[in-house]
Amino acid sequence: MKRLSGKCFCGTVEYAVDDAFVYAANCHCSNCRRTTGSAFKPFAGIPREKFAITKGAGGLLIYGDAENHDAHCGVCGSLLYSLVREAAWVHVAMGTLTDAPSIRPTHHIFVGSKAPWYEITDDLPQYQGHKP
């Protein structure tokens, strides 16, 4: 299994993840827009046991609780991943990967709350909330 690397903007926090993502999407919800400062967050989902912090775990800023949270670098603020589904899954912020994953986003979610100034121009399916 190929392992991918990722890191925050300043390099304080690094991670490794199997190139075995189960799904990937572009999330347009207001929380993802705020945490990334962008029109949407491309993310890829994987079971938690296939993801590991390899450097700087003590420097993480956790927003949320033990079972569902966003993990940012405590130095530069980069959103690295989100722990979801009662801590069973990790949503890796794809922009933090330093290696190219084999998966690509397959759909857009929460387009009902997308930024009004952003126009989705690809042909990927769009969902008002979560994918049914």
Rank of each mutant, 00 (worst) to 15 (best):
M1F: 11
M1Y: 14
M1N: 12
K2M: 14
K2S: 10
R3L: 14
G6S: 10
G6M: 05
K7W: 00
K7Q: 11
C8T: 00
F9N: 12
C10S: 02
C10T: 01
G11K: 00
V13P: 13
A16G: 13
A16M: 13
V17C: 07
D18P: 01
D18Q: 13
V22E: 15
A24R: 04
A25K: 05
A25F: 11
A25V: 09
N26A: 05
N26Q: 07
C27I: 11
C27H: 01
C27R: 01
H28D: 04
C29W: 02
N31F: 06
C32Y: 10
C32F: 11
R33W: 04
R34V: 06
T36Y: 12
G37L: 06
S38L: 02
A39S: 08
F40A: 00
K41Q: 15
P42D: 00
F43E: 13
A44W: 02
G45L: 10
G45R: 07
I46W: 06
I46Y: 06
P47N: 01
P47Q: 01
R48T: 15
R48Q: 12
E49W: 09
E49A: 11
E49L: 11
K50D: 10
K50M: 13
F51C: 02
F51W: 12
A52S: 11
A52I: 09
T54V: 15
K55P: 06
K55A: 03
G56F: 00
G56N: 03
G56P: 07
G58P: 11
G59R: 00
G59V: 00
G59F: 04
I62K: 15
G64L: 08
G64C: 09
G64Q: 07
D65Q: 02
D65M: 03
D65I: 06
A66L: 01
A66Q: 04
A66N: 04
E67R: 05
E67V: 15
E67P: 08
N68S: 15
H69T: 02
H69C: 04
D70S: 14
D70N: 14
A71F: 08
H72F: 15
C73M: 05
V75C: 08
C76G: 06
C76F: 05
L80Y: 13
Y81S: 08
S82M: 00
E86R: 14
E86N: 15
A87H: 07
A87S: 15
A87K: 05
W89H: 09
W89L: 02
V90D: 11
H91Q: 08
A93S: 09
M94W: 10
G95R: 01
G95K: 00
G95S: 02
T96Q: 05
L97H: 12
L97K: 03
T98P: 12
T98C: 13
T98S: 14
D99Y: 12
D99V: 08
D99W: 12
S102K: 14
S102G: 13
S102M: 03
I103A: 02
I103Q: 08
R104E: 15
H107I: 04
H107S: 11
H108I: 09
I109K: 03
S113H: 05
K114E: 09
K114G: 07
K114V: 05
A115I: 02
A115G: 14
P116T: 03
D123C: 01
D123E: 05
L124G: 13
L124A: 10
P125V: 01
Q126F: 12
Y127N: 02
Y127F: 15
Q128A: 13
Q128N: 07
Q128K: 06
H130D: 13
H130E: 14
H130V: 00
